[in-house]
C-alpha cells in the first residue's frame, strides 16, 4: 500500500509527525482499529443497551434519538449490536490469527527440521489445502454445532497449512546457513537450535501473515453466518447482523448497511496495517508483493 520511503522528498520527513507523513494510511488504519478494539472492550459504556433484548413493538424502526442506528426485525438496537458485534469480530480475528500462527509455527518448525516427519506432515497439509476453506469450515461447524469456539476452530483449521508452509520455507532456508550448521556441529540440542536460531527468522513474516489471517478470519466469520453455519444468532456479531439484515435489506437497509460498513472498514484497516507492517518488517516479501 504505502510507498517506499525513497520516493518521498527528504524534506517532508523532518515534519512534526514523520511517521504519520510516511505512512498516513497505516496510521489512520491503526487508529480506526484502536477505536474498534476500545469500543469492543468498553461496549457496556458506549451508550448501549442489552444487545439481545427485544422490544416487539419497536421493530424495524429507522434511526432516531432513542435508537441511533434504528432497530432490527426483533426490535433490538442496531447501535448496541454493532458495538457488541465488534467484540465477536475482534475475538474471532485475534483468536484465529493467534492460534493458527502458534499451531502452524510448531508444526512448521518441527516438520521443517525433522526430515522423516516432513513428508507425512506436508501430505496432510496438502490435503487440507486442497479442500476449499469455506467448505471445510461449514462442514466443521455443522459437525460440532454452532458456538463461538467451533466457529473459531473451523476458521482456523484451513489457515494452518498456509502458516506451516511459510514457516517451513523459512526453516529450510535458514537451516543451511553456516551459523546454524555450526551450532549443529558443536552439538547444540534441537530445541535450542529451533528457538534460538530458527524461530527469530520466522517471526517477522509470521506477524505479517497473522494480520492477513486476522482479516480473512473476520471475513470468513461473516460468510459462515451468511450461509447459516456461523456464530449462533443469540450472539450479536456483524456476520449475524448482515445475515439477518439481508432478508429485509430492501425494507430496512440499515440492518445490512451498518454491519457491512463496519466489517469492510475493519478488514480494510487490518489489511492496510498488514501492508504497513510488511513494508517495515519484511522488505523482501514487500518487494515480492
Amino acid at each position: 500500500m504505502s510507498a517506499p520511503a525513497t520516493s518521498l522528498p527528504p524534506a517532508r520527513l523532518s515534519g512534526l509527525f514523520p511517521f504519520l507523513r510516511r505512512y498516513p494510511l497505516v496510521v489512520i488504519a491503526g487508529m480506526i482499529l484502536g477505536l474498534i478494539v476500545l469500543a469492543a472492550v468498553f461496549a457496556p459504556f458506549m451508550f448501549t443497551r442489552d444487545p439481545t433484548s427485544m422490544s416487539p413493538l419497536q421493530r424495524l424502526r429507522p434511526a432516531s434519538e432513542a435508537y441511533w442506528l434504528g432497530t432490527d426485525h426483533l426490535g433490538r438496537d442496531v447501535w448496541s449490536r454493532l458495538v457488541y458485534g465488534a467484540r465477536v469480530s475482534v475475538i474471532v480475528g485475534l483468536a484465529v490469527a493467534g492460534l493458527s500462527v502458534i499451531i502452524g509455527l510448531v508444526i512448521g518448525l518441527i516438520s521443517g527440521y525433522v526430515r522423516w516427519l516432513d513428508a507425512v506432515v506436508m501430505r496432510i497439509m496438502d490435503g487440507l489445502m486442497a479442500i476449499p476453506g469455506i467448505l471445510l469450515a461449514i462442514a466443521l461447524v455443522s459437525v460440532s454445532g454452532a458456538s463461538l469456539t467451533t466457529v473459531i476452530i473451523a476458521i482456523m483449521v484451513p489457515e494452518i497449512p498456509r502458516v506451516v508452509r511459510l514457516v517451513r520455507s523459512v526453516v529450510l532456508t535458514v537451516r543451511e546457513e553456516p551459523y546454524v550448521e555450526a551450532a549443529v556441529s558443536i552439538g547444540t540440542r534441537l530445541p535450542l537450535i529451533l528457538t534460538r536460531h530458527i524461530l527469530p527468522n520466522c517471526i517477522p513474516p509470521l506477524i505479517v501473515q497473522a494480520t492477513y489471517v486476522c482479516a480473512s478470519a473476520m471475513l470468513t466469520e461473516a460468510i459462515l453466518s451468511f450461509l447459516g453455519a456461523g456464530t449462533p444468532p443469540t450472539i450479536p456479531s456483524w456476520g449475524n447482523m448482515v445475515a439477518e439484515g439481508r432478508l429485509l435489506f430492501q425494507i430496512a437497509p440499515w440492518n445490512l448497511l451498518w454491519p457491512g460498513v463496519a466489517l469492510a472498514v475493519t478488514i480494510l484497516s487490518v489489511n492496510i496495517l498488514g501492508d504497513g507492517l510488511r513494508d517495515r518488517l519484511d522488505p523482501k516479501l514487500a518487494k515480492r508483493m
Binding site: 439481545t52 433484548s53 427485544m54 416487539p56 426485525h73 426483533l74 454452532a146 447459516g228 449462533p232 444468532p233 443469540t234 439477518e244 432478508l247
Partner: peptide, 18 residues
C-alpha cells in the same frame, strides 16, 4: 433447541429464551 435457518422459528426461539 434454537433453529437458526428458518426465520420464523429462529425468532420464536429467541423470544422465548428472552
Amino acid at each position: 433447541l434454537a433453529t437458526t435457518d428458518i426465520p420464523v422459528q429462529s425468532a420464536m426461539a429467541q423470544y422465548t429464551a428472552d
